[in-house]
Design a protein around this nucleic acid. Structure first.
Length: 1044
RNA sequence: GGGCGUGUAGCUCAGUCGGUUAGAGCGCAUCCCUGAUAAGGAUGAGGUCCCUGGUUCGAUUCCAGGCACGCCCA
């Protein structure tokens, strides 16, 4: 006896009880442990920040991260899955700053780095329990109890090892780089961070005149949107090949790009004279500094006109103001020309004493005064504003400034070739990312800035003497303890900064450099750090690196995918992962980003409560989002996957259980004899095909393709196999056929639950748990993934069944077109085709056609020309290459071939036709035959198959039609009265003689169909009124007790 | 501004290694079925396969240019 199954299931509730079962039995860990000792399938889980709650992007990636490991586990691999947390970094610091209502370096240091960092530690795991509950509810199996945290001492120690290894290889250097910098957070931002905060803002746009030396009253005009960088101006840049204008205007001379003149002078009358010159004629001129602060830099070559290829005439004056301390192009040019990169701005974005007049003021706030002064001094030529896209801090929304920052780098450019090589070993899904987005990114890779001037992160393990001459990199806790002479428990900044190391060269005490590492360096170190390599797990790690599989979103191309690669190549000259599945972005249904503020998407917990995790998983996986395309998330889509897959699957299962229980059938032990029934053989074959298709797609990490065959199979199972087999389950004799039906359906459902298990872990568990036989594993997730059994596959049968479905569809089309309802039996259906193979393969299945279309007989014939006219069209695929340009003429000739000639071609002969006086030989493969049903006949066709129905009705057929109608009404009444499916009844029918006669001559049929033990025909009855094929009648259904 | 991706029915998406009739589901209309009922089936309407050029006997598919959207990077 199976647990009774309602066909009205609450999936969410059912999933909850599966979760309970897993929890009580430790099923997840069992599934992992069961494979201990087997080959390992290595999965790396990228760590999310725990400071935010999970969103659909996480649920999607999480689902992919669940399906693949579940699948590989079922394939027999040992798949460890540890969750991880990204604990460090600006997001945490920012939250603490907000909590404490402080901001910036000064206030943090006033408060104390120890207080600040401990506060960070205390909030960083704030949402871990929410994560755990959502991830678990999604059905994702991942070990939260053995999670790794980037702030664990062991994790941080491995980071030090990574850093030291790179240091020893000469891949780390300290340099200066112009970086986007947030004055409020007092930190440079990474490129990925910068990009999150572009906003349109209005900035000043001013044109300034620089007075040239050695030329009276001559000025060169430059344009800028950052007046505060003007005190740091070191040069002006022009384009060598750009055409410039020399304009004489009221005794003064101005230089600017010719293309830009019209912006400043509306009319030629406004100036006196214009001559043209090329940019390189300007190069080498010198000018007077507009501010006095760095006038001494002229000794070092400042205040010259230089040539640069980044100069354009798109805006401004075609002359670029160069401040090497505040712009990347400027810096590069300055390096090349030996200019000083002055940077008179402190960590909080305020002018230093070097710029005495504005010292202590925020640079942007000084813009107005600077402009006022320039105007007063007659240096400001033009002033307006510009609306442009400018980067802002993604956390605090402060406009960023670009400035030179002392920064530590990894020499990525030096190992670029090896990165590109290593990428060749990786399988990317979708494939285009490999040479496309990721490959291109590697080819253009730049050195990677890895340090942050912040607090809550893994400190750089670098100690340095005050004079900067002696530098030491520490690679482990033990080493630091030895060098520093004290115990070390915690590697965070506020602990290790207290440790000083005595110099070996007599330079006093070495102190740690202040920076901490970028959290991307930390997450990129995950393969080593989560295992505390090389301090622990050395052999195991080395035997199993790199990972077989990772999966994250497209946004990680420049993030985790990249940092993993850089570090693994730097350390081991290998990629860190072999296969990667990249998912796209989950957008709201309106195509915009999901936004909490706009509430343009349904809450995830609501979705889970309403439709369940299986439906949500299925919806996401069966979409192009698993191939890095965008997904517009829609609740209807989730509903759809529920209705079209989960409910039908559940109904099939519930159908089986209901009747198996009625019959007291249960899966026998062993005797899984091969069924002889054609439907059984067909569904078994289809099942094996499904298994093979799913496995092939999964082995190629193509999740969408692996899910798609389920749709077809469920369709075949419910709408064909079960519907066609129902009577085999209902019939009262317990014969072999019935037993084979049960056995087949049972087998299919159990195997299907295994195939579906990685994708739909809940419903498959429910089905499996109820249907499993004694002695088999207690959970579907402890089973092996089915291996396609070729001996059960019968391609010919699958093909034939598909032809049968075509015949049935054509038959239905005919009935529908000619208004012949299916309940009315008809005498003969003709299936006509010339192809005898088709006839042979269908013949065995003709009862299905007869029953499906309610016809007494299916006749096969090959005289298709009696029913349809043949016409031919050229097969361009064949004839195109053969005839080239002449193909059109040949095609026309083919369309004019008479029907009798065509028949010969159909028979397999070759026919010769004349085209432009040339004989052309045509074989059966050269033409496509089309069949046009003759008018007035009840004929339909598709491909090579024609179907025709004889519509004439005999008295017998009419009576049978009436009987069927009656049965239909009775069934409706049974249902209306909520009768149990086994309830016996008595039926009273009062109506005309026609009905009585119809029922009497089909009495056995009526009785079996309706479980009616007695049928009587009183003059009148109290029953409800019906009309049956135009005959009014009354029917009464009376439940009766039958002795067993 | 650059790189990558996407653009196919009202909507969500398949597909086309170049072949003349481009598919599915949803939605809509009409009908059928009803012991799968949060169902099921049939039929119909609905498409310049983003645009423009090129290659070709033939382009929705390949190439080039453009447009729109998205992501990433400047």
């Amino acid at each position: 006896m199976y647990e009774p199954v309602s066909n009205k299931v609450d999936f969410s509730e059912s999933e909850q009880s599966v979760l309970e079962f897993w929890k009580e039995n430790g099923t997840f860990l069992k599934s992992v442990e069961a494979r201990k000792g087997a080959d390992e399938f290595l999965f790396y889980d990228g760590p999310p920040f725990a400071t935010g709650l999970p969103h659909y992007g996480h649920l999607l990636a999480g689902t992919i991260k669940d399906i693949v490991p579940r699948y590989q586990t079922m394939r027999g691999y040992y798949v460890d899955r540890r969750f991880g947390w990204d604990c460090h970094g600006l997001p945490v610091e920012f939250e603490v700053e907000q909590d404490l209502e402080i901001s910036g370096k000064t206030q943090i240091e006033e408060l104390g780095v120890d207080v600040f960092n401990e506060r960070c530690r205390s909030i960083v795991l704030r949402y871990t329990s929410e994560w755990r509950s959502v991830v678990t509810r999604m059905g994702r199996w991942v070990d939260f109890d053995r999670d790794y945290k980037t702030m664990d001492p062991s994790y941080m120690e491995s980071i030090w090892w990574v850093f030291k290894s790179l240091w020893d290889k000469g891949l780390i250097y300290e340099g200066k780089k112009i970086l986007p910098y947030c004055p409020r957070c007092s930190t440079p931002l990474s490129n990925f961070e910068t990009n999150q905060g572009y906003e349109d803002v209005t900035d000043p746009a001013i044109t300034i005149r620089f007075k040239l030396k050695n030329e009276d009253n001559a000025y060169i005009l430059a344009w800028t949107t950052t007046p505060w960088t003007l005190p740091s101006n070191m040069a002006l840049a022009v384009g060598k090949d750009i055409v410039y204008a020399r304009i004489e205007d009221k005794g003064s001379v101005y230089y600017m790009a010719k293309d830009r003149v019209s912006v400043y002078y509306r009319d030629e009358d406004e100036y006196d004279k214009m001559t043209e010159l090329r940019g390189d004629e300007l190069v080498g001129k010198t000018y007077e500094p507009i501010f006095p602060y760095f006038a001494h830099c002229s000794d070092e070559g400042a205040f010259r006109v230089l040539a640069a290829d980044f100069v354009s005439t798109g805006d401004g004056t075609g002359v670029v103001h160069i401040a090497p301390g505040f712009g990347e192009d400027d810096y590069m040019l300055g390096m090349k020309e030996g200019l000083p990169a002055v940077c008179p701005v402190d960590a909080e974005g305020q002018f230093t004493d070097e710029v005495s007049d504005y010292a202590g003021r925020r640079v942007k706030e000084a813009d107005a005064d600077i402009m006022k002064r320039l105007k007063a001094e007659g240096k400001l030529v033009h002033r307006s504003t510009i609306v442009h896209s400018y980067p802002h801090c993604w956390r605090c929304d402060e406009p960023l400034i670009y400035r030179g920052i002392s920064t530590w780098f990894v020499k990525v450019e030096q190992i670029k070739d090896r990165l590109v090589e290593a990428n060749k070993e990786i399988k990317w899904v979708p494939g285009h990312l490999k040479d496309g987005r990721f490959g291109k990114w590697l080819e253009g890779a730049r050195d990677w800035a890895i340090s942050r001037n912040r607090y809550w992160g893994a400190p750089l393990p670098v100690w340095r003497s005050e004079d900067g001459e002696e530098v030491l990199c520490v690679g482990s806790i033990a080493e630091l303890e030895k060098l520093g002479g004290r115990e070390v428990k915690d590697l965070h900044k506020h602990h290790v900064d207290k440790i000083e190391i005595p110099s070996k060269e007599g330079r006093g005490m070495l102190k740690r450099v202040p920076e901490v590492l970028d959290c991307w360096f930390e997450s990129g170190s995950m393969p080593y750090a989560q295992a505390h390599y090389p301090f622990e797990n050395k052999d195991r790690f080395e035997a199993h690196f790199p990972a077989d599989f990772i999966a994250e979103g497209l946004d990680q191309t420049r993030g985790w995918f990249y940092t993993l690669m850089v570090l693994s190549v730097a350390l081991f000259d290998r990629p860190a992962f072999r296969n990667v599945v990249v998912n796209g972005m989950v957008l709201a249904e309106d195509g915009r980003k999901m936004s909490k503020r706009l509430k343009n998407y349904p809450d995830a917990m609501y979705m889970l409560d309403t439709y369940g995790a299986d439906a949500l998983r299925l919806y996401m996986i069966n979409s192009p989002v698993v191939r890095a395309e965008d997904l517009r998330f829609s609740e209807d889509g989730v509903k759809h996957s529920l209705r079209h897959l989960l409910i039908p699957l559940w109904n099939a299962y519930s159908f089986f259980v209901t009747y198996a229980n009625i019959d007291g059938w249960s899966a026998g032990d062993g005797s899984s004899g091969v069924s002889t029934n054609v439907l059984d053989r067909w569904i078994r074959s289809s099942l094996e095909t499904l298994v093979a298709d799913v496995a092939t797609a999964m082995d190629g990490y193509d999740l969408q393709r692996s899910v798609r065959p389920f749709v077809r199979f469920i369709e075949d199972l419910t709408n064909w196999y079960i519907r066609r087999s129902r009577r085999r389950f209902w019939k009262s004799q317990d014969d072999d056929d019935k037993s084979q039906a049960y056995q087949t359906l049972h087998h299919v459902l159990v195997q299907l639950s295994k195939v579906a298990a990685p994708f739909l872990p809940f419903i498959s568990e429910s089905i499996y748990r109820n249907l499993r036989s004694e002695g088999s594993p207690e959970s579907v997730h402890l089973c092996d993934f089915p291996i396609a059994d070729g001996s059960f596959r019968d391609h010919t049968l699958e093909e034939a069944m598909s032809l049968v479905m075509t015949c049935v569809r054509l038959g239905r089309q005919l009935r529908s077109e000619h208004n012949l309802k299916v309940r009315q039996p008809l005498s003969v259906l003709h299936v006509v085709t010339r192809n005898s193979e088709i006839i042979d393969s269908i013949r065995e299945l003709k009862d299905i056609i007869a029953d499906e279309l309610n016809v007494k007989k299916v006749a096969f014939g090959d005289h298709e020309t009696e029913l349809a006219t043949l016409s031919a069209k050229a097969d361009f695929r064949q004839l195109g290459p053969r005839f080239g340009p002449k193909v059109k003429v040949v095609a026309k000739a083919i369309s004019e071939i008479p029907s009798n000639e065509l028949e010969r071609i159909v028979e397999g002969d070759s026919v010769s036709i004349s085209v432009d006086g040339e004989e052309v030989e045509l074989g059966p493969n050269d033409v496509v035959i089309e069949r046009i049903p003759h008018d007035g006949l009840v004929v339909a066709c598709e491909g090579q198959i024609l179907v025709a129905i004889e519509t004439a009705l005999t008295d017998e057929l009419v009576e049978e039609g009436l009987a069927r109608e009656l049965v239909n009404k009775v069934q409706n009444m049974r249902k209306e009265a909520n009768l149990d499916v086994t309830q016996r009844i008595r039926v009273d029918v009062s109506g005309g003689e026609d009905i009585k006669r119809a029922v009497e001559s089909n009495m056995e049929y009526v009785q079996t169909e309706t479980l009616c033990v007695e049928c009587s025909f009183p003059e009148s009855s109290a029953g409800s009124e019906w009309e049956i094929n135009g005959h009014p009648c009354r029917i009464e259904v009376i439940p009766v007790q039958v002795e067993a």
